[in-house]
Nucleic acid binder design. Sequence first.
DNA 1: TATCCACACGCAAACGTTTTCGTAAGGTTA
DNA 2: TAACCTTACGAAAACGTTTGCGTGTGGATA
Lengths: 340, 340
Amino acid sequence: MKQKVTLKQIAKELDVSISTVSKALKDSVEISLDTRQKVKAFAKLYNYKPNNIALSLKNRKTKTIGVIIPEIVHHFFTTVIGGVEKVANEKGYNVIICSSNNSFDKEVINLEMLASGSADGFILSVAKETQQKKDYHHIEETMSQGMPVVLFDRIIDELVCDKVIIDDGKGAQMATNHLLSLGCKKIAILTTVDYISVGKLRTNGYLRALRAYDITAREDYILKIEDIDHCESEIADFLKDKDLDAIFAVNELFAVTAAKILNNQGKKIPDDVSIVGFTDGILSKHFIPSLTTISQHGEEMGIRAAKLLIDKLEGEEDVPEEYKTVIIDTSLIQRQSTKK
Amino acid sequence: MKQKVTLKQIAKELDVSISTVSKALKDSVEISLDTRQKVKAFAKLYNYKPNNIALSLKNRKTKTIGVIIPEIVHHFFTTVIGGVEKVANEKGYNVIICSSNNSFDKEVINLEMLASGSADGFILSVAKETQQKKDYHHIEETMSQGMPVVLFDRIIDELVCDKVIIDDGKGAQMATNHLLSLGCKKIAILTTVDYISVGKLRTNGYLRALRAYDITAREDYILKIEDIDHCESEIADFLKDKDLDAIFAVNELFAVTAAKILNNQGKKIPDDVSIVGFTDGILSKHFIPSLTTISQHGEEMGIRAAKLLIDKLEGEEDVPEEYKTVIIDTSLIQRQSTKK
DNA sequence: TATCCACACGCAAACGTTTTCGTAAGGTTA
DNA sequence: TAACCTTACGAAAACGTTTGCGTGTGGATA
């Protein structure tokens, strides 16, 4: 098992100094052509690769972007990561991904770990628990230590930093409008509890759309689901004996679950009930009927977030701080779950 | 913007030496109680966190596991990562995830980057291109430099290292047997091209099951799909005018796509045609009808892989090399796409 | 022959730790 | 008072780089 070869070893073998080796590998004119060639040949032979750790220590930067997301087994978030990776790779950055598993503690641990030397900046969507606790000290601390943070999707309004979001309200409004324009009047919404920022925003969008159509929102048409893992029974209860003509669900799972329950009730989609979801994932695409949905353009979010972060990382040090909030357009993807 | 505080700065402020600070923070008896308390108070106040990079350099280990997967937007792989993270976090390891995007070049780049200081060992499922090219020098090199590698799912037989796989053949056999036991006789398989190791293994399992039932396999019942992104037309062509009573698909997407096409042909699932898929993802679970499938137990794979890797990382240096191949049991999840 | 200048290379510091070893100060013992 | 032991701390090396600067050697010039 040959160990990794270092400059020191090459220097020893070739009987020159470490600096000579380093400079030779960089093709410095300080070093004679002869020596340069010898060193490079040797380095190639032994497959020398500079040690990133040492470089990071020396340069005080890691060329690494830390991404922290609430869930790793989640189509939308992985799509965003895809976008981040695209930009990062182009610009020579590495990407470290950590999942907080929606736990505040794990988010803190991950952030602190990455912040202590492993990453230069962060792209972050906060955990459910964090939104609930409203404790952002870890993020503030990271920023105050000079590491830029870009928040996306589940952001925190109180935090002053770059952000990439979609206009959740507008998206929800678009979805609801679509249903209204189809002639639906009895439109229910399946949403999350209010402390999830995106859930609340989408609920508001739904309400705004109804108002614009002069339809009074009904409390009993709004279901706020707390426990996503057991949404099925909640939705089933909610849907029992309700005479709806449309459902707007704030995510794929709610939409699909509702569709299945309606199916079992013998209702036809979209003939009896139309459904619009949120997030364009594989479920929406492949479900029968395929689901009309609001696309969040996850990859685009990742791309923009990465660009914002890298701009900060590579920008002038003493430029006055200026933070942007990028709003990604949502779009309605019409499929079979809403009638034409 | 207060910069990160280092031992040196604390030392300067408190007018002691760096070593004193370091020892004090570690509660060394060498340092007087007085000094210890003073240092600790100061460190806390300024929120001192040891710099991981410096530690890595010093300790020659990073306490980080590198995971390289072919795709990040992929349910199975993210499930595996979930398992890896579980174990890693328990044992105090960090997890870095990189995706090769099924590109050989990117796999090489990622591996080399992580290998040059960022990770102590690797958990890796190789890119499609790598399997095709049969070029494994980057992996061999990594191992020869003393960094353990655990291969999972898409492994390479020629490589001598730890591996975690499922018995793809057995799983496929189980799936096919299930169909046979239901009385199906005309069973087609939707599989991948042969250079994808798991595809080939599953095809073989299918063939074995048929043989055991004394059914001659028919060439025209086997579809090897090259381009997953455009599988729909291939499958549609294949299914045209075929009088099948069952389909075994080696992944979720093929299964769902076939189901949709059959639907359009007016065939009922499972009454006219039964379908068994592979991989227990959200699609299989939520599709209507829900799909009978072979579960790969992705999380378990991740757990086992992480354990194998950490064992190697923490094992004695000079213990004779010994490599294990862990085979995870697959299981058949019966749902609605096969008749009872 | 004394002076100067390239050339080609080495020294050493720095990045932030940890840890071994050395040592000054002060107290105890003989 | 000399010898010794604690106590409490500091110096320095090491991890692997990069880089500014110093310097020895040899040849060219005056």
